[in-house]
Amino acid sequence: MRVLLPLLFLLSAPAMADSRMEAAPLANVQLKDPAQERQAKALMETIRCLVCQGQSIADSDAEMAGDMRSMIRERIEKGEQPEAIRKWLITRYGDWVTYEPPLSSTTLFLWSLPALLLMAGGALALGRIRRKR
């Protein structure tokens, strides 16, 4: 798919040395309730890892991603809504932290892009159709 040379170079940089601590309690352990775990997992897949930047925290080996996973699982377990947690993170890290661009005046263009392109292209193609007499 790419010149997909997976260099986790940020991870191996010295500044990102690992601590000697174990992973946070729920970093790599699922919630008991499968419905809650599904909610947590869906949220984690859309939160961008701050250390290894090109991945979601669900796919990252970075310790901070593990800490964030653990935090998300704990808060979901306590009954918090995933969107509330996303909002909480956005207040701290800005829109950057979510892979799901929130609907705003700037992203409205992005979300309407498929429809816009379909209409423009469709109009162009219609011009080439032979009309029935």
Partner: peptide, 9 residues
């Protein structure tokens, strides 16, 4: 603005 466009888009 710093935004991330990913799988959810």
């Amino acid at each position: 603005q710093q935004v991330s466009i990913g799988p959810p888009y």
